Simulated scan of single mutants.
Amino acid sequence: MPIYEYECKACGHRLEKLQKISADPLTECPACERDELNRLVSAAGFRLAGNGWYETDFKSGNKKNLAGEGGAEKGTTPKTTAKDGAAA
C-alpha cells in the first residue's frame, strides 16, 4: 500500500497516510476539521538494499555488486586476464 501525502489549504497542516490505491482521498483535516485537505503529488521514496533478486538479475558482467564480495573497493572485483586467468 502506498503512503500518500496530504496538505490542508485552510491551516497548512501536512500529514502522511497509508492507504489502498483504490481508497478515496481524505478530505477532512484532522487539525482544523475543515474539508480542505488535498492529496499532494510526491516522489516515491524507497531503496532496494541487500543481495536480493534486483541486485543480481538485472545487472551484467562486473556491474554486479553482491553483498559480502571482497575487492579493493566496495562493488569492485579483481580483473582477470584472458591469457592465464590470473588477477591483474
Rank of each mutant, 00 (worst) to 15 (best):
Y4N: 06
A43Y: 05
A87M: 11
F46C: 06
P2E: 09
V41F: 00
K9A: 04
E5T: 15
Y4F: 13
K79M: 11
D35T: 10
P25M: 03
T27I: 13
Y54F: 11
A88T: 11
K20Y: 08
K63G: 03
H13I: 04
S42W: 04
R14T: 12
A67C: 13
S60D: 10
T80F: 05
E33R: 14
P30G: 05
L40M: 09
P30I: 07
S22H: 10
G52Q: 09
H13C: 02
K64M: 09
K20Q: 08
S22L: 10
S42T: 06
N62H: 08
D35L: 11
S22G: 07
N65S: 10
G85I: 09
L66G: 08
A67S: 15
E55L: 01
K20L: 06
V41N: 06
K59W: 06
A88S: 15
V41L: 04
G70N: 12
L26V: 05
M1Y: 08
E55A: 15
K83F: 04
T76I: 13
K83E: 07
L15M: 15
T80N: 05
C8T: 01
R47D: 06
T77G: 04
E33F: 04
L18Y: 15
E7F: 00
R47M: 03
C29V: 08
Q19T: 07
T81E: 07
G50F: 02
H13W: 14
S60C: 03
I21T: 13
L18K: 15
D24G: 04
R34E: 00
L66S: 13
A86V: 05
E5W: 06
F46E: 08
K59H: 12
T80K: 12
E5L: 05
P30L: 09
D35F: 07
K63P: 03
D84I: 09
G71T: 13
C29N: 01
A72K: 15
E33P: 04
K20C: 05
G68V: 03
M1I: 12
N38L: 10
P2S: 13
N38R: 14
R14A: 09
P25S: 10
K79F: 07
V41G: 03
N62S: 11
G50H: 02
L18V: 13
D84G: 12
K17L: 07
A10C: 13
K9C: 04
T27P: 04
A43V: 03
F58A: 08
L48F: 02
G50N: 02
E16N: 13
K20H: 09
K59Y: 08
R14H: 11
A49C: 01
G70P: 02
Y6F: 14
E16S: 12
Q19Y: 04
D57T: 09
Y6M: 01
S60W: 00
K64A: 01
A86C: 07
A10V: 09
D57S: 13
E55D: 14
R39E: 02
T80P: 00
R47E: 11
L18C: 10
T80E: 09
G61T: 09
E5R: 14
I21D: 12
T77M: 05
G12P: 00
P30M: 01
E55R: 07
